[in-house]
Write a protein that binds this DNA or RNA. Structure first.
Length: 398
DNA sequence: GTCAATTCACATGAAAGAGACCACGGTCTAGTG
DNA sequence: CTAGACCGTGGTCTCTTTCATGTGAATTGACGA
């Protein structure tokens, strides 16, 4: 019997500690959403006019990641959908997650995606942008419906392509004769609307809601209710849920992360052959999540980014590194691995993008007469770092 | 010693180019009846 | 006659380059005490 078969056989023999793992996955939508009743009711109140085909106010939802914004909105929309189908009220819902690449990178793509969601095909590129607007507009208007458009992570969208698209979308109502469209924006960033054009801001946030982070007790509740369905009985040691909740509450009260932590800890426990989920697994899971996440990010970067990152990782053996050092080293790397070196201007941008990704910390300092530059340090823990260096060395063959 | 001007080494912005992708319409070509 | 191959044109999109301007504090050098 081959090795792989053994692995599979073993896997089948071990009685897994999970009952239903997908309950802990981030795309799972639970039936009831604890500690969000108020918000859900409020959303329902705001959206209720839709059922009488009156346009609901545009809604703006704020809250950190993992505070249940998307979940709550989707929950309410699901109810509306069920009701509208039952009573055949012409309401159409559109949901776009602006974070997803290739969907909401540009104005064109976003509108094209909306059109596709409405069941028409449209070229992925090649048409003028105003053409695509016209198509969208016509489809909407001829349907004679009420549209609810959800733009999740709308701050990402505006950061990438500006607020013009929002202006166009909010303005579209005044030109529609048969249909109406109301917009629900979901944002992680409290300060998001500050960057917006005041006109857009006022029309977009006719109603505003804030989702506060979960506290440790609420997180415990959530974890408990989900783990009851996700795990076999009595596999979780005492204190694990509490610790997991406390862990994440201390950071941002991100329920998604708490659930991921629990899931990964479970996987680790299972893989190590343990029959119980112990606190130690939680710590391992924490590290593993970060590592996997970072490795994933790095692998998905273009070659040039990797080269710059490698230079940074290599140079940062010394205590302090600055832009200039890195650029020089980077040029070296390029000649070694047959890359065409980019200009200093571009590498500067790459460095700040790596900073945004959380792989490095870059602080702008001024050394007076000796110039102004970024002081760069690594934001990775040592095991992650060495893993990434290893990957990059292979990728760039240096 | 004090204070404004200077200076460095970049950061940051704006604009535009390069090269990839794609749609569309027109033209050419080969296969069919 | 017609379907499909093959162009040219005009559009988007991403990554880059080019050119221009901004920036914070150590250094400098003039000034007055």
């Amino acid at each position: 019997m081959s090795n792989v078969n053994e692995i599979f056989e073993d896997f089948l023999k071990t009685n897994t500690i999970f009952k239903d793992k997908k309950i802990l996955q981030s795309n799972y939508t639970p039936e009831n959403i604890p500690h969000r009743e108020d918000q859900i009711n409020q959303i329902a109140k705001i959206l209720a006019p839709a059922l009488k085909l009156q346009k609901p106010s545009n809604l703006f939802v704020y809250g950190k990641t993992g505070t249940g914004k998307t979940l709550s909105v989707k929950h309410v929309l699901k109810k509306i959908k069920a009701l509208s189908e039952e009573k055949s009220i012409p309401i159409q819902q559109l949901y776009i997650n602006c974070k997803l690449k290739k969907i909401a990178d540009t104005e064109y793509r976003l509108i094209a995606q909306l059109i596709r969601d409405l069941g028409k095909t449209v070229p992925t590129t090649g048409l003028p942008t105003d053409e695509i607007y016209k198509i969208f507009f016509n489809i909407i208007d001829e349907r004679n419906q009420l549209f609810i458009l959800v733009l999740d992570e709308i701050d990402q969208l505006v950061k990438k392509i500006g607020d013009e698209i929002l202006y166009n979308l909010t303005r579209i109502n005044s030109e529609l004769t048969n249909s109406q469209i109301s917009i629900i924006g979901i944002s992680n960033d409290y300060k998001f609307t500050e960057y917006l054009d005041p006109r857009i801001k006022s029309s977009l946030s006719e109603e505003e809601m804030v989702f506060p982070p979960y506290n440790a007790l609420q997180l415990q509740d959530i974890l408990l209710s989900r783990s009851r369905c996700a795990f076999q009985d009595n596999v979780i040691e005492d204190g694990v849920i509490e610790k997991c909740a406390a862990y994440t509450a201390r950071e941002h009260g991100d329920a998604r992360r708490a659930l991921e932590l629990l899931r990964v800890a479970g996987e680790l426990a299972e893989r190590s052959g343990s029959e119980k989920l112990k606190i130690a697994h939680l710590d391992d899971a924490d590290e593993k999540i970060e590592k996997d996440h970072m490795v994933d990010i790095v692998l998905n970067q273009p070659k040039q980014f990797q080269a710059v990152l490698y230079s940074i990782l290599f140079c940062s053996k010394e205590s302090q590194v600055f832009t200039g050092d890195i650029y020089n080293f980077y040029k070296n790397i390029c000649s070694k691995s047959a890359l065409r070196p980019l200009t200093q201007r571009r590498t500067s941008d790459i460095i700040s993008e790596l900073d945004m990704l959380g792989i490095i910390n870059a602080k702008i300092i001024s050394k007076g007469r000796y110039g102004r530059m970024r002081q760069i340090s690594i934001a990775l823990n040592p095991t992650t770092k060495s893993k990434i260096v290893e990957i990059l060395e292979k990728d760039l063959n240096v």
